[in-house]
């Protein structure tokens, strides 16, 4: 998509090696330029249509309206985004901390796997948000319910992928490690955990998307802070511009959380195959 930008680079000025080094940067820049142009055109069209047909602001706000709110209400949005981010991080970390050992235990004990399989299938297919009202009864409105819903949302994808990761070790490799006299703990530390890391991480990437989804729903129903709560409250005041601003803030937060996870991947798995 961004190839033209690269071709536009004057070839005579750069040596081939320089060009090759510059190419990713140019591609990256090109991608951003294209994205900005596309978004600007789209928002411009939106703005124009609203103005031409004089749609009232309480029905559909103009981009200029809600983009302005993003600036004027920045402190408010940031405050609630902070609450939402904290909830995501806590629920997600709790999910990883429970799902990975649980996946390992289930894979390690065949009886556990056979016994728990129907339960796992049932809980995995059940929409986790239906537990929300039950949790409210147990814990009341507050941050704990949101954290628990986020935990439940990301728990299963992480556990299922961790299980396949722990299973993936070639049984022939066990012959080699056994000939080395490896203890079960050594095998876990040197082989099984690092071997399962890519799968666990794949599960975490699905889990974080679920976590963001879960946190907003949780804040809709069971919270007095956070972006979900802010949007819900704005809705009861018919403050559509703030709702749109909240929507954008939520998307930006999701992007940020994803970016953190992606950079963590490079840090934790330096061996991973990466395009040169």
């Amino acid at each position: 998509m961004s190839a033209p930008a690269a071709h536009d680079a004057p070839p005579a000025v750069l040596t081939e090696a320089q060009a090759r080094r510059a190419l990713p940067a140019l591609n990256w820049l090109g991608t951003i330029v294209y994205a900005v142009i596309a978004v600007t055109v789209l928002l411009g069209l939106w703005e124009a249509l609203i103005r031409i047909y004089q749609v009232p602001i309480w029905l559909v706000p103009k981009p200029t309206d809600f983009l302005a709110r993003l600036v004027t209400d920045a402190p408010l949005l940031l405050e609630h985004a902070g609450v939402t981010a904290t909830t995501i991080v806590l629920g997600f970390l709790l999910g990883v901390a429970v799902a990975v050992p649980a996946g390992f235990l289930i894979v390690s004990f065949g009886a556990l796997e056979r016994g728990l399989y129907p339960v796992i299938v049932f809980l995995n297919i059940m929409p986790k948000t239906v537990i929300g009202p039950i949790l409210i009864v147990w814990f009341g409105i507050g941050p704990l319910v949101s954290v628990l819903i986020v935990f439940l949302m990301c728990f299963f994808p992480i556990m299922v992928d961790a299980m396949s990761g722990f299973r993936a070790v070639d049984p022939k490799l066990a012959y080699i490690t056994r000939s080395m006299g490896a203890t079960p703990l050594q095998e876990l530390r040197h082989i099984r955990i690092p071997a399962a890391m890519p799968s666990i991480y794949a599960g975490m990437k699905i889990g974080i998307v679920k976590a963001v989804e879960g946190v907003i729903i949780a804040e809709f129903i069971a919270s007095e802070a956070g972006l979900g709560f802010l949007i819900m409250r704005a809705s009861s005041f018919m403050d559509l511009t703030l709702m749109f601003a909240g929507l954008i803030a939520t998307a930006l937060l999701a992007l940020a959380v994803n970016a953190v996870l992606m950079s963590g991947e490079r840090l934790l798995m330096p061996w991973a195959r990466r395009p040169a």
Partner: peptide
């Protein structure tokens, strides 16, 4: 018991992909 004074090579290299 399994002897440890042994080296084993299989058809698959069975190297750990996360180690150099």
């Amino acid at each position: 018991a399994p002897i440890s004074e042994v080296g084993i090579v299989f058809q698959d290299h069975l190297l750990l992909e996360f180690r150099t």
